[in-house]
Design a protein around this nucleic acid. Structure first.
Lengths: 205, 205
DNA sequence: ACCTGACTTTTTTAACAAAACTATCAATTT
DNA sequence: AAATTGATAGTTTTGTTAAAAAAGTCAGGT
């Protein structure tokens, strides 16, 4: 890796950081490329030198967020004393992630119907990683004889994640039936998820 | 009840039935009052003689659907041998209801942001009734000593319903397709729900 | 290779008229 | 008096267009 490319990577990082702040604060559609460029005291054209378009820039930021989020999970997984602890950490970390970046995700709310495929690749990637970690946790518990043997850990984790998702989108809260919950509901969602964990983990024993 | 009012009620029923067919086939916004009137060979003005406005007409139809649906549930509840059976019946009946009337609910998707309060009263009423029935089933099992005593059956049922919803809308398959799953996925969804019921019921024991 | 000002193209917004539809009502029939 | 309608008033949706704003491009400078 040459010094030139190091410099390039540093600049890319700066752009990602500035973009993240704008997206987080104002949302996708109320952030202009000119504003991002202005924050960095560079020309808009330079942004297009580093990123092909606005949407790719947004998704690059999102990939970074996803990567940080997954690293947070991966660092901790493998060191849990029981399954409940693992599930709890997943739910809490996820909750924190959503709360901290809530406004960033207004991109989802605006385009709701047809989002670019790349977005779903990222979401899918996160989900796959989560499934792997949680299924691993189950497997590990089975091997420690804390859990009865289970036919298909992945299927169970999928049901668990879907259930968590359902607590986000369905039910009494999202009467304003959007794909994404309102901020005031996040804590209530979190509490329900904790209850689900208790029942679910006990049901697996 | 006089003969005149009987006649009136019959006509109201006819209007509800014709409206239901239109709403089911074309959705709310693509159904005009003229078309409904035309189907019944009556003038549009007469519709307004029987119902105050289009939205009230729609909601009258919806109330009827909700009532039929709940009766279906209530007839069966109280006669289950165990909790699993009750949960299963709820799942199957609800699914059937949604699938059969899928197009009718276009109204929800179109107005998404701000639906009339009356709609949410109806939806809330359905949900409350479901919660009551399922919570009752739990309570009944507790009293039969098939289930350990439980702090808040209602909260548990809410989580259960949300989880079911999540298995329908979320997850690996229809992350893109926001609202309803494809037919190919119905079996997978059903299997996941069975799995959830098993884990959930066991977790409550 | 990195960067910009000026430029072109696309998208959003606002204004407004035409069309479609909801809703009302005086008049008419039963 | 209750049921019904044609005509019409009022409102929402749709289509059109022009201006503004923002995305995206490029020739040329460092």
């Amino acid at each position: 890796m040459s010094a030139v490319n190091d410099q390039q990577d540093i600049k890319r990082e700066k752009i990602l950081e500035a973009s993240y702040q704008r997206f987080l604060h104002y949302g996708y559609s109320k952030t202009t490329m000119n504003e991002i460029a202005g924050d960095l005291s560079m020309s808009k054209a330079l942004l297009y030198y580093y990123f092909p378009d606005k949407s790719e820039l947004y998704m690059a930021v999102m990939r970074k967020l996803a990567s940080d989020y997954l690293k947070q999970l991966e660092d901790k997984f493998g060191h849990f004393t029981d399954l409940r602890e693992a599930f709890l950490f997943q739910v809490n970390t996820h909750h924190e992630f959503i709360v901290n970046n809530y406004n960033f995700f207004d991109f989802f709310r605006l385009n709701e119907q047809n989002l670019p495929d790349t977005i779903w690749e990222i979401v899918g990637h996160i989900r796959e990683a989560e499934i792997k970690l949680l299924a691993g946790a189950i497997q590990s518990e089975v091997e420690k004889d804390n859990l009865k043997p289970v036919a298909n850990p992945i299927e169970i984790v999928e049901v668990f994640l879907d259930a968590l998702h359902g607590i986000k989108v369905g039910g009494s809260l999202s009467y304003k039936k959007l794909n994404f919950p309102h901020k005031e509901h996040l804590d209530e969602i979190h509490n329900k998820r904790l209850l689900l964990i208790d029942i679910f983990v006990k049901g697996l024993k």
